[in-house]
C-alpha cells in the first residue's frame, strides 16, 4: 500500500511540475528491464536510460509486477543516465512463493528478496541517429546481485548467494522500416535472475546466454514487440527454462511510460509452465 501511495506521489509531482526533460525522443531511453537496466522488459538495451542527451543527466524510477501462475515477482528500482554515456541502476526484487512456499518447506507466502546494482557504459554508435550506417549502438554492462536469503537458496543446492552478470548489448532502430532490433550476450550463473541463488549442483560455471528484442514502432509513443532470453540450468532440484514475452510499451508523455507484457517463463522451482502478465510503470525526472 505504501508503495502505491509513493507511486501516486511521484505521478502527482511529475504532473504538477510538467517537467520538460526534453532531451531524447520518446521511448529511445527504453523502459526499465526486470533487473533495473534500461531496455525492454526482459533484456537490457544499449541505450542509456532516461531522456538525457550528451549534455544532460536524467533519472527515472520504476515499479514492475510480474504475476505468473504460481508466483509473483515485484521489482522496484531507479536509474541515473549520465551524459548519454553511462547508466547506474539499483533494483530491489521480492519474489513471493505463494502456496509453493509450503511445498518447498519454507512456509506459504515465503518471500525471497534480492538487490541488484547495475552499471552500463556506451562503447560506440548511436542506435537512433546514425541511420546511414548499419553499426548498432553497443554498450557493456554489469549487474551485481545479492540474494538476501542465502541460507534458503543454499538449501536448494545453489553455491552462492551473490553473483556478477556481465553483458554486451547491441541495439539499433531501423527507422526506414520502423523497427528496433536488440541482441544481448550475457555471462551469468544466476538461477532465475538470482532469486534461486547462483551456480549449483548441476552446473557451477559462468555460462554465456543470448537475449533479444524485436519491436515495431507503431507511432512515436507506442511500440509492440517480443523478447527472448535464454537461461542457464544449474540446479538439479529446480529446472530452469528459457523466457519470452510479447509486449506493448506506451509513453503518454516524456516522463511516464507504461509497459504491459504477456510472459512465458517455463518451469520455476517445482512448477511447470509459468506464465502471466508483466506490468511496469516508469517515471522520469
Amino acid at each position: 500500500m505504501i508503495k502505491f501511495s509513493l507511486l501516486f506521489i511521484f505521478l502527482t509531482l511529475s504532473n504538477a511540475f510538467a517537467i520538460d526533460t526534453s532531451g531524447k525522443l520518446l521511448l529511445t531511453g527504453g523502459v526499465s528491464q526486470i533487473e533495473g537496466a534500461a531496455g525492454g522488459g526482459l533484456t537490457p538495451w544499449a541505450f542509456i536510460g532516461g531522456y538525457g542527451t550528451k549534455d544532460q543527466i536524467a533519472a527515472n524510477a520504476f515499479y514492475t509486477n510480474v504475476n505468473i501462475t504460481d508466483y509473483r515477482l515485484e521489482t522496484f528500482g531507479a536509474l541515473i543516465g549520465i551524459l548519454d554515456r553511462a547508466e547506474i541502476s539499483v533494483a530491489k526484487q521480492t519474489f513471493d512463493t505463494e502456496d509453493v512456499g509450503r511445498l518447498l518447506g519454507l512456509g506459504s507466502g515465503f518471500k525471497i528478496r534480492q538487490n541488484i546494482f547495475g552499471l552500463k557504459v556506451k562503447i560506440i554508435g548511436d542506435g537512433v541517429l546514425d541511420q546511414d550506417s548499419w553499426l548498432p549502438q553497443i554498450s557493456f554492462g554489469a549487474q551485481y546481485k545479492k540474494n538476501l536469503m542465502g541460507e534458503v537458496v543454499k538449501s536448494l543446492k545453489a553455491t552462492e548467494d551473490h553473483g556478477l552478470d556481465t553483458y554486451l548489448t547491441a541495439t539499433k532502430i531501423i527507422l526506414s522500416q520502423s523497427i528496433l532490433v536488440n541482441a544481448t550476450l550475457r555471462r551469468t550463473k544466476a538461477n532465475q535472475l538470482g532469486i534461486l541463488g547462483f551456480g549449483g549442483d548441476g552446473n557451477d560455471k559462468y555460462k554465456y546466454e543470448m537475449e533479444g528484442s524485436l519491436a515495431y514502432l507503431i507511432c512515436r509513443n507506442l511500440a509492440v514487440g517480443f523478447e527472448f532470453r535464454s537461461k542457464p540450468d544449474n540446479l538439479k532440484v529446480a529446472r530452469e527454462q528459457n523466457w519470452s514475452d510479447a509486449f506493448l510499451a506506451w509513453a503518454p508523455t516524456k516522463n511516464i511510460s507504461i509497459t504491459t507484457a504477456y510472459t512465458t517463463l517455463g518451469n520455476i522451482a517445482l512448477k511447470d509452465d509459468q506464465k502471466g502478465f508483466y506490468n511496469s510503470i516508469q517515471i522520469g525526472f
Binding site: D126, D130, Q131, D132, L175, S176
Partner: peptide, 12 residues
C-alpha cells in the same frame, strides 16, 4: 514519417 526521419537523422 519514419522514412523521412531516417534520411534526416544522420545530418546530426
Amino acid at each position: 514519417q519514419n522514412k523521412l526521419l531516417a534520411k534526416l537523422a544522420p545530418m546530426h
